[in-house]
Design a protein around this nucleic acid. Structure first.
Ligand SMILES: NC(=O)c1ccc[n+]([C@@H]2O[C@H](COP(=O)([O-])OP(=O)(O)OC[C@H]3O[C@@H](n4cnc5c(N)ncnc54)[C@H](O)[C@@H]3O)[C@@H](O)[C@H]2O)c1
Ligand SMILES: NC(=O)c1ccc[n+]([C@@H]2O[C@H](COP(=O)([O-])OP(=O)(O)OC[C@H]3O[C@@H](n4cnc5c(N)ncnc54)[C@H](O)[C@@H]3O)[C@@H](O)[C@H]2O)c1
Lengths: 256, 256
DNA sequence: TCGACTTTGTGCATCCGTTCACAAGCGGTA
DNA sequence: TACCGCTTGTGAACGGATGCACAAAGTCGA
């Protein structure tokens, strides 16, 4: 039922600083996991699952059960001992902590290979991150709609970002342009930036930057390959490549 | 220097530990930063810079100088006290530790929006990660070259991966297909996977998975916005640092 | 050759995050 | 109602990463 526990939610709650204070104390790593739990829980909810134990959820999310419980404890105690967690309740609390109760308008800058993919991606709007503006410096692109949104010229970035209340700026330009684009976004009041360009951005303290660096990811994988090769070498001999040792596909399945 | 090492490292090989042993001891977080240092150093080398101090390099990489020196110490002592580091020397040692002395063949699975962008991206081959195979289940795509490489059918994945010695598999398929694609890659002997699908993959112990989840990144940004808003709210009653009122372009933005 | 100066490399204290282990709390059952 | 088994929530131990501070080690100029 939707109306359970009369969680009026209208912040008319007993002005507990506890909630607000709590948010500050959540470790960054835990925040990232909460986002994963949220996705898993949403999937469960869609399949009609109403309750889940920390053991089940932790397996579905690929983490240790104790860690999951600790993560959830950062946002409060919403489980029932002996039973588990109510999926919907957990979803709504995680959404609240992650600030997903309101939409976050996204702007993509640099509509090249990657920018096109991002603009066309349908996964963001549904999760509260509508892409509302696209920018590029290329005159041939300006005016053309991509993913339903017309590309604006980079010079209009301030006006458009303010008008559409952009809160997250995504940088998908070539590396040399990234810092300049970043500065423009910051000037336009954008305080969150997701950067795909392999460049270290300099920003004021009040701006949050996260980077996605595929080359770095691959190099980390490369490191592990090398390490593994070394280990194998020092132990010599080896176990066969083992096509499918154990581990099957499955994983757990729906349970209505 | 081999002056003093911590105590036993639980190694099975008592002789000539040197770099091989060292690699195992490098913290994961440091490995990620080494990749960033490498990129910065490569850029410096291209511009003719031959020497650099920990202070300069750390600033360019956006980290603390002490942390940078500690990171470098994990791979050995290649600096010169009173002077700094030789750029080329550092580059070659980092490349060696990251296993970049040999190429790592990459296969991309799922040639949709994202797959196209990845296949067309020119930044990988130059860094030792040549994309040598593309796969999709869509018959209309099979045979068509993308970024110069013809798309293969997913059913040929084992044969093609073995033939081209693919060492990294990139998953860019819709979420429902991700686990199955992952299993196929593993069966084909691929031990490193970079996953873009918002799904938790189940893999054997000998396979390394890294994920890139844009929705999670955005939610982390959202969390910080919310946290910042809370802080502002709890202080709003009175003190307002500086003379600007939140919204809009605040006064700063200076950047050297 | 020598001494002053610069910068590295690292021991150590600290902090943050992970894991363990178990008491507390709850639903179900007799 | 009283008991029993299950699962949560968390105190505490642990381990890894971070940052500081400084001795060691080298360069450079006189
Ligand atoms: N394509 C990928 O798969 C991929 C992978 C990893 C990293 N990246 C990084 O993402 C970024 C974009 O990659 P891409 O392949 O889409 O490049 P791209 O060259 O296809 O597109 C870049 C776009 O940015 C535009 N642009 C250039 N300067 C601009 C400016 N000052 N303001 C606004 N727009 C500007 C260009 O007109 C172009 O449309 C690059 O930094 C690249 O290194 C891309
Ligand atoms: N496009 C983005 O910017 C973006 C952003 C974040 C996450 N993602 C994720 O990346 C993945 C790909 O996104 P997209 O926008 O490119 O999707 P898309 O639908 O454009 O492309 C998916 C491609 O995978 C192919 N495919 C489907 N099943 C397959 C199978 N079993 N084997 C091989 N190929 C198969 C399809 O034929 C299609 O060409 C999705 O999981 C998406 O959630 C994409």
């Amino acid at each position: 039922m939707a109306s359970q526990r009369g969680e009026g939610e209208t912040t008319t709650t007993p002005a507990e600083p506890a909630d607000r204070e709590r948010a500050r104390a959540i470790p960054e790593a835990a925040v990232a996991r909460l986002a994963v739990y949220l996705r898993v829980l949403s999937g469960m909810a869609d399949q009609g699952v109403t309750a889940v134990s920390s053991e089940e959820l932790s397996q579905a999310a690929g983490v240790n059960a104790a860690k999951l419980r600790k993560d959830l404890s950062y946002i409060g105690s919403y489980g029932t001992r002996g039973v588990g967690y109510d999926v919907e309740v957990l979803v709504s609390h995680i959404e609240r902590i992650l600030g997903l109760t309101r939409n976050h308008s996204v702007a993509v800058v640099g509509i090249g290979n990657l920018g096109h993919a991002l603009a066309n991606y349908g996964g963001f709007p549904g999760r509260g991150f509508p892409v509302t503006a696209l920018f590029d410096v290329d005159a041939d692109l300006v005016g053309i709609p991509v993913g339903g949104i017309p590309v604006n010229h980079i010079d209009d970035i301030t006006a458009v970002c303010l008008e559409r209340e952009v809160s997250i700026g995504v940088i998908a330009t070539p590396p040399p342009a990234a810092q300049s684009v970043c500065d423009r976004l910051v000037s336009a009041g954008v305080q969150c930036i997701l950067n795909f360009a392999p460049v270290v951005l300099q920003v004021p303290d009040n701006v949050e930057v996260r980077k996605v660096d595929l080359a770095v990811e691959m190099q980390i994988l490369s490191f592990h390959v090398a390490r593994r090769a070394d280990e194998a070498a020092s132990v010599s001999a080896g176990i066969g490549p083992a096509g499918n040792n154990g581990l099957g596909v499955d994983g757990m399945v729906i349970r209505p």
